[in-house]
C-alpha cells in the first residue's frame, strides 16, 4: 500500500514536472529539403536529401523520489559538527587506527553501553587528494576500521552501520594541510 501510494506520488510529481517543462520543450533543428546546387561548373554533384534528425523530448529530471536514509539527524552533514561522539582522525592515505583514535573509540564504546538503544552510523571521510573512486574505497575502509574496533569492544554490530563519503563531504573545503587533516576522519552520527 505504501509502495502504491509512493508510485502515485511519483506519477503526480512527474506529471507536474512534465507540465512545467511543456512550454520549453523544443524539437531539435531539423534538416529539410536541400537548397539548389550552386556549383557554377558542370561538375556539380546532386545535393543529398538529409535524413530527418531524430526527434525526442528534452531531458527530464529523474529521481523525483526524495532522498531517504537521512534519519541520522544529530549531526550536521555540512560541517560534521554536533553529536555526542567525537570524530577520529587518520594519517594520509591510511585506514589504520592511531592510538589516539583507539582511545576515543573506547570512550565511544562506553557511551554506547550507557545509551541503549542508540545506533551509530560511522561515516568514513577523506581529504581531497587522490581520485573520487579511490577515496570512496578508502573512506569505506576507515569506517569499517572504527566499526570493527567498536565491535571488538562489545558494541553489537546491529547498532553499527558504515558509509563512505570519500572526499565528497569535506569538513573544511580549503586546500591545505590543516584542512586535509580535519577531513581525514570518521564521523559518528547517532540516532536514538
Amino acid at each position: 500500500m505504501i509502495r502504491l501510494a509512493r508510485a502515485w506520488l511519483f506519477l503526480a510529481v512527474a506529471a507536474a514536472l512534465a507540465a512545467g517543462c511543456g512550454g520549453k520543450k523544443r524539437p531539435p533543428a531539423v534538416a529539410t529539403a536541400p537548397p539548389p546546387s550552386s556549383a557554377p561548373s558542370g561538375r556539380s554533384q546532386p545535393t543529398e536529401v538529409p535524413p530527418p534528425v531524430e526527434t525526442g523530448p528534452d531531458v527530464r529530471a529523474v529521481d523525483t523520489e526524495a532522498a531517504r536514509g537521512e534519519d541520522f539527524t544529530v549531526s550536521n552533514p555540512e560541517t560534521g559538527e554536533g553529536g555526542p561522539l567525537e570524530d577520529i582522525r587518520f594519517e594520509y592515505d591510511s585506514a589504520n587506527l592511531t592510538d589516539h583514535a583507539r582511545s576515543i573509540l573506547e570512550k565511544h564504546a562506553l557511551w554506547l553501553q550507557n545509551h541503549r538503544p542508540a545506533k551509530v552510523l560511522v561515516e568514513g571521510h577523506c581529504d581531497e587528494r587522490g581520485t573520487v573512486e579511490y577515496n570512496l574505497a578508502l573512506g569505506e575502509k576507515r569506517a569499517r576500521a572504527a566499526r570493527d574496533y567498536l565491535a571488538s569492544l562489545g558494541v553489537s554490530t546491529d547498532r553499527l552501520r558504515t558509509v563512505s563519503y570519500g572526499k565528497e563531504r569535506p569538513l573544511d573545503a580549503a586546500s591545505n594541510e590543516a584542512a586535509w587533516a580535519a577531513n581525514r576522519r570518521d564521523h559518528f552520527a547517532v540516532s536514538r
Binding site: V30, A31, P34, P35, A39
Partner: peptide
C-alpha cells in the same frame, strides 16, 4: 574546382 561538397538547410526554433 568550385565543386559543391555539401549543401544543407536546417530549421528550428531561433532561441
Amino acid at each position: 574546382t568550385g565543386q559543391s561538397m555539401l549543401a544543407k538547410r536546417y530549421s528550428g526554433p531561433a532561441d
